[in-house]
Simulated scan of single mutants.
Amino acid sequence: MTIIKPLGYIGKQEITATADRLLAQIEASAIPPKWPQVADRAADFLQLDIQWERFDPVRDGVVAAKIYPDTKEIYLNEAFPLIVDSSGFYQSTLAHEIGYWLLHVDSDNVDIPATESDRERVFLCRNLDEQIIKVRHEKTPEEWREWQAQYFASCLLMPVNQLEEVRQGRNLTNWQHLKAIADELGVTISNLCNRLQDLEYIQKTSNSNRLYPGKKMRCP
């Protein structure tokens, strides 16, 4: 029996519902979620232990984090510059690993002694242009897991109700306003823009930094 779920299709609606359900559970607890440290609060709520370690690039590759499901431990790479220097990238990385835990780990089997293959299996959070949220049908199984975990991270860190709250009185096509929102939510500006584009709040051409209102902003 394995603690890793077989890879299956998990769409945006289901991933969003998983993140929203976790936020609702935390909200009902003694310590509700708080931005910009919502990923830390989620890890505490799920009793996932956070450790820092200098990864061996030969053994682990160039990665920011990994999770050991059988011990409920998330290890963050203290030698990975972005995760140390950017609080937004740290939150995204931690939320990404939480996504692995909720979407890909069979938590009912965590207490069952892990097989050797499970002990060796870790999930890696790679710095691939901050895991831009794009659905490409040619993805490998590992890339699909990466996409699912990172989409979960965006839903956890930037739920629609929170975006609606922080965007009040701000212009989403103004970079300075976006920077202020990103700081308030504890995310990177690129992750915020990807999320806003995915939700159709804004549009951005690939060869320009100019932003345009999306369908949601144009609706009365």
Rank of each mutant, 00 (worst) to 15 (best):
2 T>L: 01
3 I>P: 00
4 I>F: 04
5 K>T: 00
8 G>W: 00
10 I>K: 14
11 G>L: 03
12 K>G: 01
13 Q>F: 03
14 E>C: 01
17 A>C: 02
19 A>K: 04
21 R>Q: 13
22 L>W: 07
25 Q>S: 13
27 E>Y: 06
29 S>Y: 03
30 A>H: 12
35 W>P: 10
36 P>S: 10
37 Q>N: 11
48 L>T: 09
50 I>S: 02
50 I>V: 15
59 R>K: 12
59 R>Q: 13
60 D>R: 05
63 V>W: 07
64 A>L: 10
68 Y>A: 11
68 Y>V: 15
68 Y>C: 03
74 I>T: 07
74 I>Q: 02
74 I>N: 00
81 P>H: 10
82 L>G: 06
84 V>I: 12
89 F>A: 02
90 Y>E: 04
91 Q>S: 11
92 S>W: 02
95 A>C: 06
97 E>C: 03
97 E>P: 03
98 I>S: 06
98 I>N: 03
107 S>N: 07
110 V>I: 15
113 P>K: 03
117 S>I: 09
130 E>C: 00
130 E>D: 13
132 I>V: 15
133 I>P: 00
139 K>A: 12
141 P>R: 08
143 E>T: 04
145 R>W: 02
153 A>W: 00
154 S>K: 14
155 C>M: 09
158 M>W: 05
160 V>M: 08
160 V>L: 13
165 E>A: 11
167 R>G: 00
168 Q>E: 15
172 L>I: 08
174 N>Y: 09
175 W>Q: 08
181 I>Q: 13
182 A>G: 11
184 E>C: 03
185 L>G: 04
188 T>A: 06
189 I>N: 14
189 I>P: 03
196 L>C: 07
196 L>I: 14
198 D>I: 07
198 D>E: 14
200 E>I: 01
201 Y>V: 13
204 K>A: 11
205 T>Y: 08
209 N>F: 09
211 L>T: 03
211 L>A: 09
212 Y>T: 11
215 K>Q: 13
217 M>Y: 05
219 C>R: 11
